[in-house]
Design a protein around this nucleic acid. Structure first.
Lengths: 209, 209
DNA sequence: TATAAAAGTGTAGTGTGTGCAAACATGTAG
DNA sequence: CTACATGTTTGCACACACTACACTTTTATA
């Protein structure tokens, strides 16, 4: 058994292979279009067998776009939500942003994926559909957290589960819009700035209705 | 050439076949799970050849869940938007609702799809990803419409394209939430009621942030 | 009834993804 | 260093979605 902090040769090799394949995959996709690239080509260019490819990635798409985001540990989620008292939406957006920041996130890989998405915008909604699991987990977490907030300090009179569902959908929308801006390269600052801008636009639009 | 208003035998037969296949597809999916159903089974049960299946439907998913929604003709879109002055969000939601109502919409087929989605919730985000095209077209339409509204009557000071993008995303979110309620069978009334409820919840949540 | 157009089908593929079992590498213990 | 256990990689055979092409059948119209 090997439970120390150093990864060990075996795991290091594995990680190397994974990132190498991901890089090759996204590069080929940028070159020829993601549909035109075959798994066999990716494998040939990364020196692994097709069978091994599917040990690493459940689908071709996963290798090109990356694994779907995972939810932070529950206590971290609670902490972030509590940091935004009376503004569940901002809290949930912050959680999603952290999930995003915490993902694999080799910077150059992210950059290349951004380039790819710019060239093939139809990949963006697919990526969003992969948020599904995250979304469901988040609804549970937010709902539980809301139930622990005394009614006097809540900013709505909705049932916790209803507020949680809609808040999570809204937060995903905010993140989605921010990612679109980020992909378009328009936003001057980082994601934070784009998120703040989106949130204030959101307020204007909703209040105007 | 046949350009009269009556469909003609050929087209009637075609329509019959399409709806029959759709019914068989969704029924089999309810019985065995949509992943476990093969195109061959659907074809055997609906007396067409697999090759013909793919003449009718681009994918298996399309046969089970239905074609993605199509945008109403541009003048209708403009009309609906103009019916909701100063509340672009409500207007866009109304447009989406009409698109929904105008889709194939054999009532019993819709019911069965509702049952299927209840059993396999992961189908819902997939369905939403299919909104992609509709969403893009809608952004263009809304943006053009907003540009025709004098600034004094606008409820925000955002650039038309920015307001259009975010408004469409929000409207899709509202529709998505309403469909989820409708699928869950919770809403007492029809979609309209669910949409109104969602919109007012939305206001509460955003104003509370 | 003859004929052109459209719809349906069979065949032979490509590509993604899976199950299984054998070959291989690596870590551990004597 | 050797031997064993465990995890990784691979080859092979396969199921299924989907496509290109050529061919037959059906329908609409003259």
């Amino acid at each position: 058994m090997h439970t120390s902090s150093t990864p060990g040769l075996r795991d290091r090799k594995k990680l190397d292979t994974v990132t190498r394949v991901q890089r090759v995959a996204v590069d080929l996709a940028i070159d020829r279009g993601s549909d035109a690239v075959t798994v066999e080509e990716i494998c040939a260019a990364s020196d692994i067998s097709p069978r091994t490819f599917f040990n690493y990635f459940p689908t071709k798409e996963t290798a090109i776009l990356g694994r779907p985001l995972e939810l932070l540990p529950p206590d971290e989620v609670r902490g972030i939500l509590t940091d935004h008292p009376g503004a569940a939406l901002r809290g949930v957006v912050a959680v999603l942003d952290r999930c995003f920041a915490a993902s694999d996130a080799e910077p150059d890989l992210m950059t290349r994926r951004r380039v790819l998405m710019e060239a093939e915008p139809q990949l963006i909604p697919r990526q969003m559909a992969a948020f599904d699991r995250l979304e469901q987990q988040l609804v549970v977490a937010v709902s539980e957290w809301l139930e622990g907030v005394p009614a006097a300090r809540r900013s709505t009179d909705l049932a916790a589960i209803d507020e949680a569902r809609l808040t999570v959908l809204l937060a995903v929308t905010v993140i989605r819009r921010s990612i679109m801006e980020w992909v378009a390269g328009a936003s001057t600052g980082g994601r934070e700035r784009a998120i703040d801008a989106t949130l204030s636009q959101l307020e204007q639009i909703v209040k105007g209705s």
